[in-house]
Each structure stands twice: as structure tokens, then as C-alpha cells.
Amino acid sequence: MGLILSILTGVLYAAAIYLLLRRSIVKMILGIIFLGNATNVLVFVSGGLTKASPAFIAEGQQVAAEHIADPLPQALILTAIVISFGIIAFSLALMYRFYKITGTDDLDDVTEEDEV
């Protein structure tokens, strides 16, 4: 399982970098989404994969059952997902605005000459 997820991480990163290098903003945003997911899987894998029950203490017990999964990487990923959700929503709105203002989604159409 660890091996599969590691390979998946690599594939996701590769796809993300490829997309980020494209000129189109839509693809760039897709790249950012991929990058976020790749990072989440990476955190998940490096936090250690265990075949265990969730980190809950059963009713009436004082301590948890023997093997519980480490809840911290899951909490980190959940937080990261929430944050990237906000970021994606923002960048979609930004993309729309970029299109409205410049009339293109190609980054190279808006050149340095436009500045200043």
C-alpha cells in the first residue's frame, strides 16, 4: 500500500508540474489542485500507514483499543483540504476576472509591456 501511494504521489507531482508550466490559467489552476492533492497524499504516506481502527475511545472505556491510527496526519490533511478548498474557490474567481479584464486565458498574451 505504501509503495502504491508513493508512486501515486510521484505521478500527481509530475502531472501538477506539467500543468503548472502551461500558459493557460485554467490548466495552471488544475496544476495547483493536483499539487495540493499530491502534497496531501505525501503527508498521509509519510505520517505512516497503519492498518488500525480510528482514534476513538469506545464508550465506557478509559483508554483506546490496542491499535489506533495516528490521528495527527489526518487532522493535518483535513486542515490542508479546507485551506486548499478556499484557495481553489478564490483562484477560480480570479481566473474568471482575469478573463473578463484581459479577454484571454493565455498568460503570454498579457506581456510585460502592459506593465507600468
Binding site: I25, M28, L94, F98, T102, L107, V110, D114, E115, V116
Partner: peptide, 8 residues
Amino acid sequence: RQQMNGAI
């Protein structure tokens, strides 16, 4: 236009 370019 230029602000969008920088912002992206």
C-alpha cells in the same frame, strides 16, 4: 490588466 498579470 497589469494588476491581473502581477496577481496571477
